[in-house]
């Protein structure tokens, strides 16, 4: 099939060499950041931004590309957190193996939650996945003998590299592990959405009946979408548990979901990069407002509402309208 490559306006249709080049430069800049940010606190903020970026960009896969309103995405993250905690503490599994295992457990959970939503659309998917998240939280709370219930789990084993103390040198090692996870996750997501599978996922979102009539399996593609979005989310959860060395059911709460969702929507859906940039912006913005104390969530909420009202396509929309304005001036 020959397609005029320039006329298609779907995201992911930029020449891959261009995209790889820009992404490589961006990641190189991120990798050099520890040279300038030498204090432990500054790096901590960056590590958190990387974790959020992984969770948000993976959510963009199911929400943006798939059009599946999966409101249980943070539950997949939470499952990663607890899978890692339980695997290392209870089963004594090696932390690195547990990290990968948590990704697999989250993927399995995503497959399970996909079954009831196969026949559903829109708001019903929101409700079932929202319910799924609450269900997981209730299960964790009720099994307090293993999970610590409302107290959470403490003293979870961290990651290790030989005999290096991971928190030494201002969290140097954790910074690069977090960046590495973000790199792998982004590489995976971008390759997926640029592939034929990615195109079929978008096709199902945009015109379900037509896509099905052309032989795309809704069941299989929806499974792939949700499962793919879960793997790195689970790993991010496990890394979060290893890094914080504790786990609590707060990760299932509405406030974290709201923040991450606003990262996805602020960045602009169906771009992957938008969610990553918005995660950095919002995490750092939130840090700048640390002095405002209780007003911080209020200001954040107002900002989210303002952006949604003015730029429903998010930061990507702002960027593209700026870009168009520049192009118009040149012409």
């Amino acid at each position: 099939m020959s397609m005029p490559a320039t006329s298609i306006k779907t995201p992911g249709r930029i020449d891959w060499k261009h995209e790889a080049g820009v992404a490589a430069i961006a990641f190189a800049v991120l990798a050099l950041l520890p040279l300038f940010i030498t204090d432990s606190y500054g790096r901590h903020i960056l590590i958190m931004a990387f974790i959020y970026a992984v969770v948000a960009s993976n959510w963009d896969l199911s929400l943006g590309y798939g059009g599946v309103f999966n409101f249980g995405h943070l539950a997949l993250f939470g499952i990663g957190v607890y899978a890692y905690g339980l695997a290392t503490k209870l089963l004594g599994i090696d932390p690195w193996i547990a990290l990968v295992l948590s990704g697999i457990v989250s993927t399995a959970a995503a497959v399970i939650v996909t079954v009831p939503i196969l026949r559903l659309k829109g708001i019903y998917i929101i409700l079932v996945t929202f319910g799924f998240a609450q269900l997981v939280m209730q299960l964790i709370l009720s099994q307090s003998a293993y999970t610590g219930g409302t107290q959470g789990m403490v003293r979870i084993e961290g990651l290790y590299i030989a005999s290096h103390n991971m928190v030494r040198d201002a969290k140097f090692a954790y910074f690069y592990i977090a960046l590495g996870i973000l790199l792998l996750s982004t590489l995976f997501l971008r390759s997926l959405v640029r592939s034929r599978t990615g195109a079929s996922i978008v096709a199902l979102r945009d015109n379900e009946e037509y896509a099905i009539s052309r032989g795309i399996s809704l069941v299989r593609q929806r499974m792939i979408t949700l499962a793919s979005s879960a793997f790195f989310t689970g790993i991010a959860g496990a890394f979060y548990a290893a890094y914080q060395r504790n786990a609590s059911v707060d990760v299932f709460g509405m406030s974290l979901s709201t923040i991450i969702l606003s990262m996805v929507l602020l960045g602009g859906t169906s771009t992957i990069y938008g969610a990553i940039v918005a995660s950095f912006a919002l995490t750092i913005f939130s840090e700048f407002m640390a002095d405002f104390g209780a007003w911080r969530p209020i200001i954040t909420a107002l900002l989210i509402i303002a952006v949604m009202l003015v730029y429903p396509s998010g930061l990507a929309g702002i960027a593209s309208s700026l870009f168009n304005a520049i192009k118009r001036r040149r012409a």
Partner: peptide
């Protein structure tokens, strides 16, 4: 979807 996020933000507010 957008109303979900704006009402969630309003709830937080």
């Amino acid at each position: 979807l957008v109303v979900v996020i704006t009402t969630l933000a309003a709830a937080s507010l």
